[in-house]
Design a protein around this nucleic acid. Structure first.
Length: 300
DNA sequence: AAGGATGTCAACCGCGAGTGA
DNA sequence: GTCACTCGCGGTTGACATCCT
């Protein structure tokens, strides 16, 4: 038995949205709020499937979207978050106010990948672009070999965490651990880098390429030291919506306001400035984060 | 100016996870 | 525990724009 289609395909429009369709969707959501995507098209008089409506709203019509080019600051944040989270575009988007996962994914594939490659950095591993070490590191990560400093860099807080959040944490943890067990870790640890070389049997008689990589690696090491990257990263996911606020069947503006207020209260008590945690060691929220909900924005 | 190559980005598709009956 | 339904995510596609020859 095949999977049932998400919607009636026969009488639905596909492709680019017209202004009229946009207007209908905006108007409907303005009055009724988001949610119930499956029934929305019919209720709003749109010949679209719910998925399509949701996507259009989230990626294009939402009023809080920041249109326009990415700033250098955003570039660097995306790179940092990607190095920690991998291709978790929605998580990354949740930490960049006004940006969508689709937008960031596209931007990554079209701009940042190239930017990193031109810097001699592998966009996937965030380590130096070196075929040999990449292969070896992947094997090491996959077999769960010793990760001397993995615990130092990852402190996970499982308090008030839903099963889904735990799964997410485990995924992130795996991501981070493999990152620090691989050549990413080795770029912070010359000893490990040397041992990798020994394993390759290339400890003597470096080629020009190897010299270049080593030089590049040293540059990266000193560059990270200069930036005082905070490796004592603590990751704690916020409780899920359902854990915080009883589900309300009502979609009224009042209940939405009530939810919003609850989130704001949570925000005040547990706000974490992620970009600062990841980078510079400052105790206060940076100007960027003051205008967003910081780390937990994803859940709002 | 033409048309092929390349880049960009909105939209689609398939899948997995959560949830309620 | 199972099933059906819904939502959301990540990868991919394709239309359009821009660049290059």
């Amino acid at each position: 038995m095949g999977r049932s289609p998400c919607c009636e395909k026969a009488h639905t429009n596909k492709g680019a949205w017209t202004k009229e369709e946009d207007q209908r969707l905006i108007e409907y959501i303005r009055i009724h709020g988001e949610g119930c995507w499956r029934s929305l098209p019919k209720a709003a008089g749109l010949l679209r499937c719910g998925k399509s409506c949701r996507l259009r709203w989230i990626n294009y019509l939402r009023p809080d979207l920041k249109r326009g080019n990415f700033t250098d600051e955003e570039d660097e944040l995306i790179i940092k978050f990607h190095s920690l989270l991998g291709n978790k575009w929605s998580l990354i988007a949740g930490r960049l106010p006004g940006r969508t996962d689709n937008e960031i994914k596209n931007y990554w594939n079209t701009h940042i990948k190239r930017k990193l490659i031109s810097r001699g950095i592998d966009p996937q591993t965030h380590g130096p672009r070196n075929e040999k070490t990449t292969t070896i590191s992947k094997t090491t990560a996959a077999t769960g070999a010793a990760k001397p400093n993995a615990n130092r860099v990852t402190q996970l807080n499982f308090e008030n965490t839903s099963p889904r959040s735990i799964a997410e944490i485990n995924h992130l943890k795996g991501n981070i651990e493999s990152k620090y067990s691989s050549n990413f870790y080795s770029s912070f640890n010359p000893t490990k880098a040397e041992s990798t070389e020994e394993n390759n049997g290339t400890s003597s008689g470096m080629t020009t390429d190897e010299e270049h990589h080593r030089h590049h690696q040293q540059e990266r090491e000193s560059s990270y030291e200069n930036q005082e990257v905070n490796l004592d990263l603590t990751i704690a996911l916020a409780p899920s919506r359902s854990e915080l606020i009883p589900r309300s069947s009502s979609n009224s503006a009042e209940s939405k306001l009530q939810q919003q207020t609850s989130y704001q209260l949570l925000d005040q008590t547990r706000r974490v400035c992620t970009c600062c945690q990841l980078g510079s060691q400052r105790s206060e929220l940076c100007s960027k984060c003051q205008n967003s909900n910081g780390f937990y924005r994803y859940y709002y």
